[in-house]
Amino acid sequence: MSMSFDPFSQLDRIAQSVFDTSRQPRIMPVDLFREGDQYVLNADLPGVDPGSVDVDVDGHLLTIRAIRSAANQENVRWLAQERPFGAYLRQFSIGDDVNAQGISASYDNGVLSVVIPIAERAKPRKIAVESASENRRRSVSA
């Protein structure tokens, strides 16, 4: 199998070795949307061991951490090694309108799903409108 020479990838490898970017936390791509009375966050973490995934909430900060280990293959001569490994980190600021106690997470097929329920106090509610004539009738009959 032959690989064509790509000068930009060579420069990237040199920059990685000089600036040691392999130790910097990787950013994970996410989708975030509201569905009914909850927010759903889906984060791509392919090849990550589910045991290394950590989701925590501290006040108004939701933090997701994960580690993807490097391939431990001895006596191989790499022709290409482009799949990133190392630490992944993503943080989100959450407001008062969520129920932090009800947050749940699951990991399936390389996708971490975090469900963030909306707090009862933040849900829309209907307010009854009374007419002035009803208020007068009640005060006369009382």
Score class of each variant (00 low, 15 high):
D6I: 12
S113P: 09
D37T: 13
A43M: 09
A105P: 14
D37S: 15
Q10W: 08
P29K: 04
A119K: 01
L89M: 14
F85L: 06
A80E: 13
A100T: 11
P84V: 10
S69I: 08
L62T: 02
S69L: 11
A80K: 09
P25K: 03
N42Q: 15
W78L: 14
V53F: 00
V53N: 00
R125E: 11
F33W: 13
S131P: 08
A66M: 12
A43Q: 00
F5G: 03
E130V: 11
Q16F: 08
M28D: 06
E74L: 10
R34N: 13
Q24A: 12
I67G: 01
S139L: 13
E134R: 04
L79W: 11
F92H: 03
V57T: 01
S2W: 08
S4R: 04
V129K: 05
A132K: 07
R68H: 10
P117F: 00
D108Q: 14
S133R: 07
F85N: 10
L79R: 12
Q73D: 13
V57D: 01
E74P: 06
S52Q: 03
L89F: 12
F8P: 07
D58P: 03
S9R: 11
A132Y: 04
P29N: 09
D96A: 10
D6L: 12
N109I: 01
A132H: 04
A70L: 13
H60M: 09
Q101G: 11
S139W: 01
M3I: 15
A100D: 06
E35N: 14
I27L: 09
D96P: 15
Y39M: 15
D97S: 12
Q16K: 13
D31K: 11
F92Q: 01
L79V: 14
S22C: 00
V111L: 09
D97F: 05
P29S: 08
L112T: 01
A43E: 00
R83L: 15
P7L: 05
A80I: 08
I27Q: 08
V129G: 04
S141L: 09
A128V: 12
E74D: 11
V140Y: 06
F92V: 03
F8L: 15
F8M: 15
P7W: 02
I118R: 02
D54C: 00
E130C: 09
V98C: 02
S131D: 14
I14F: 12
S2V: 07
S93T: 14
I118D: 01
V53G: 00
S69M: 10
A66C: 13
M3N: 10
A70M: 14
I14S: 10
R13W: 04
Q10L: 15
N72T: 14
A80F: 06
L112M: 05
E82Q: 10
N99C: 03
G51L: 02
S17R: 06
P117A: 02
E82F: 09
Q10H: 08
R125H: 11
V140R: 06
S17V: 04
D56L: 05
A132P: 05
R68I: 09
E130H: 09
M1A: 12
R121W: 07
Y88A: 15
D108M: 12
K126A: 12
R138A: 07
D37M: 11
T63N: 07
A43R: 02
A100C: 09
V76G: 07
A15M: 13
V140K: 06
I103S: 01
L62P: 04
